[in-house]
């Protein structure tokens, strides 16, 4: 099936769950990611059960901190490590999103 991930259309096996997708996309820190499926943010507990379907649009939205170093509580700052998309994929996404 074809699904759109961060604006890029990709071929994925049928029956894939959101959790499977996080793994197949090699998201290194899934705890730092919100997943939006067809414009609706999912709860984390839904990742394992929610099966993806042909034409679904998935956005991985990363928590990002990074401003003044210690303005309030000091939890450290935000980092979302992940596999970076290839350049070509990003440019394809540009075309898809505008």
């Amino acid at each position: 099936m074809q699904i759109q991930i961060n604006g890029i259309v990709k071929e994925k096996p049928d029956g894939l769950t959101v959790q499977d997708l996080l793994e197949s996309e090699e998201v290194e820190r899934p705890e730092m990611v919100s997943v939006e499926l067809n414009d609706h943010i999912l709860f984390r507990i839904e990742f394992r059960e929610r099966k993806l379907q042909e034409g679904d649009r998935v956005e991985f939205i990363y928590l990002m901190g990074g401003g003044a170093d210690r303005t309030a509580g000091d939890l450290g700052s935000a980092v979302a490590l992940r596999r970076r998309p290839e350049s070509k994929e990003w440019h394809d996404a540009e075309e898809a999103s505008f």
Partner: peptide, 11 residues
Amino acid sequence: DGTDSFASKFL
């Protein structure tokens, strides 16, 4: 919001 930490951002 020009803060760095998540505690600040959520606050």
